[in-house]
């Protein structure tokens, strides 16, 4: 992915596993993971909303952990395994969290949605959220300007329900 016109600019050789496929890259060190995904790799499901780590639209899973891909230089991830929204499911084979988002109308414009879903999938796996209030708190890095928050919380609760990770507080009530 190095800029052919600028042979004098520094490049690094790395390898990444992206959605299960190991790939080798020659990159400028200043390329963020987000710009790598959205640019040369054409994996545009990962969104750019601020480029400053403020909105969460670019959330992807790196070795299972949710991160803002706009804040990560791709060359710092040599060897890592990255799952993007495209790796979670496809229109004809949706991930349970993706299905729950459709069912609960947990979006409107859909732009923050891939980030919300990646974040939610990691949230469930982390296992820290035990109540709806905790879901809200731990999802607060993902902004939704259309205001689908209550529906997103419903979708996450449903997935936790079906996986028997019922929020303790509500279950007790």
């Amino acid at each position: 992915m190095a800029d052919a016109r600028s042979p004098d600019l520094p490049v690094c050789n790395i390898s990444l596993s992206i959605n299960g496929e190991r790939q080798k890259f020659t990159l400028h060190p200043w390329t963020t993971l987000l710009d790598l995904l959205r640019g040369p790799l054409e994996l545009s499901g990962t969104k750019k909303g601020c480029d400053h780590g403020q909105c969460g639209a670019c959330t992807v899973l790196v070795d299972g952990e949710r991160i803002n891909s706009c804040l990560k230089l791709a060359v710092s991830l040599d060897g890592a395994g990255i799952i993007t929204i495209e790796g979670l499911g496809s229109p004809n084979g949706l991930h349970p969290m993706q299905e729950a988002f459709v069912e609960h109308d947990a979006y409107q414009c859909g732009y923050c949605t891939p980030g919300q879903i990646c974040s939610a999938v990691a949230l469930v796996k982390e296992g820290h959220a035990r109540s709806r209030a905790e879901i809200r708190e731990l999802m607060s890095g993902n902004l939704c300007r259309c205001g689908a928050y209550t529906n997103i919380a419903d979708a996450i609760e449903e997935v936790m329900d079906t996986q028997r990770i019922r929020p303790v507080k509500e279950a007790a009530e």
């Binding site: 499901g45 750019k48 004809n92 459709v102 859909g110 891939p114 879903i117």
Partner: peptide
């Protein structure tokens, strides 16, 4: 009724203005 464009949106397959190559 669930959105007919929903599966595209939740799977990252709905192309927005900057996502044409």
């Amino acid at each position: 009724t669930a959105r007919i464009d929903g599966p595209l949106k939740v799977s990252g397959c709905a192309p927005y203005a900057a996502e044409h190559y």
